[in-house]
């Protein structure tokens, strides 16, 4: 339950930064917080009190955490990083034209 709470708070914070802040870089940060909240939740939720799912040589099989969500989260992180990089690039490009990264001053984003 604690995990869910923290997830909701982080998710809402990220969404708030994305929606309400006018600085485009801050928006991207918000987007990343939002994604990170989901990753965090997945890892925390799949924790059943076991170990990381890596066998150790000479040791017997003990209680493992689920490896699948961890692998999926790894994929998600990489994808999130790539999209963030693309977005930041576009913001750099837009800055060349407008000399600002403030959303309120860039009329074209609204329509």
């Amino acid at each position: 339950m604690r995990n869910n709470f923290i997830f909701i708070i982080l998710f809402m914070l990220g969404l708030y930064a994305l929606i309400m802040k006018t600085n485009l870089i801050k928006n991207v940060i918000g987007l990343n917080i939002m994604e990170a909240s989901i990753f965090f939740w997945v890892i925390a939720f799949s924790d059943v009190g076991g170990e990381v799912a890596i066998h150790k040589m000479g040791e017997e099989f003990s209680k493992f955490n689920d490896p699948v969500p961890q692998a999926l989260t790894l994929t998600g992180i990489v994808i999130g990083a790539s999209t963030a990089a693309l977005l930041l690039t576009l913001i750099i490009e837009l800055n060349q034209f407008t000399d600002t990264i403030d959303r309120d001053e860039i009329e074209g984003l609204n329509n």
Partner: peptide
Amino acid sequence: YTGLRTGVSDYIISSGLSDTGSLNLITAVL
């Protein structure tokens, strides 16, 4: 999510090592 269900993860944990030969099961999944 109290325990592992019968299903994908259970199978992977129990026979992942013998299937793939990878000690790291996350790498095995990936």
